[in-house]
């Protein structure tokens, strides 16, 4: 399933990286600890988090993640958003809690352990 398809079905709002939504999502990860994500998220994964600062974009780039989902209705910081746009990292925003977002992703067939 692509980032675009997931965003459409779950009603996620794309706030950055709209040109890179055709990527296939390999897996999912949820954490607010950056080193946890660095150590465990997979290539082309979708990452659900409540962190909203620039380093989120750095982690997504280094791991080649397919997209970042900012849960809980949080707004990403302006500098982070600018960086995500400049680097073409898809950032999707949702009012759903992280728990709900992960549950819905799982329902769509996205798995953590692949």
């Amino acid at each position: 399933m692509t980032v675009q398809e997931i965003a459409d079905i779950l009603g996620l709002r794309c706030v950055a990286g709209g040109k890179s939504l055709e990527r296939e999502v390999s897996s999912g990860y949820v954490s607010d600890l950056l080193s946890d994500v660095m150590g465990n998220a997979r290539d082309s994964g979708i990452w659900v988090t409540s962190q909203v600062h620039q380093n989120v974009v750095a982690v997504a780039l280094l791991l080649d993640l397919a997209a970042v989902v900012i849960a809980g209705g949080l707004e990403m910081n302006d500098d982070a958003l600018a960086k995500a746009k400049a680097e073409g990292v898809p950032v999707l925003s949702t009012k759903m809690s992280a728990f709900e977002a992960v549950g819905r992703l799982y329902e769509l067939g996205v798995r953590g352990d692949v």
Binding site: D32, L33, L34, S35, D36, M38, G39, T49, Q51, H53, N55
Partner: peptide, 15 residues
Amino acid sequence: EMGFGAGMGLPNMKR
């Protein structure tokens, strides 16, 4: 609070 300091950095590097 920014999500750093989880005590996983050096172990991640080693891994």
